[in-house]
Amino acid sequence: MMTKAIFSGFGGQGVLMMGTSLAHSAMSSGYHVTYLPAYGAEMRGGTANCTVAIGNEEIASPVASEPDYLIAMNSPSLFSFQTKVAARGIVFLNSSIISDRPSRSDLTVYSVPCGDIAQDLGNTRVANVVMMGAFIKKSGVVTPEMYLKSLETIMGSRKKGVAEVNRKAFAAGFDYIKD
């Protein structure tokens, strides 16, 4: 098994946290994993992205040739990365702010209005966790329990109550994707 995902969006949308929390839960689940963020001047323009590769064996390259998943939190991300996604790959779109759709017809698209869902939960900042709920449900790379545990570990030092909000956000995203 080898799963590769690109998370991309505006700086401040918590895109890097999406990657690190997935990487952490993959590690806790016993997989090999590599997380690679875009860094430096590239980030200064206000966009952020990261790649996570998860596998049963040693990860050869941290640079993902053809990611199976693209999680686009804004329109520029969709346009930047849709051409890189593997044939018949899966794209998750933050449909709260992305009205466009991929130009490739082989991709499966899940539109998740994670911004709106987060707003309904009373905290727009957890849109990323909503999206992770949807992603984990569909990809099944790690169990929801393992993911939430990692999320809590990563956010550990932050305010209490955050864990509860995150749980709710994750569940909302998870349930949004129908089996």
């Binding site: 690190t20 990487a23 590690m27 090999h32 994993v33 590599t34 997380y35 690679l36 963020p37 860094y39 430096g40 990860i59 941290p62 640079v63």
Partner: peptide, 10 residues
């Protein structure tokens, strides 16, 4: 290199 500096692995 820069990639290894930024990369995370268990």
């Amino acid at each position: 290199d820069g990639m290894m500096g930024q990369m995370m692995e268990p």
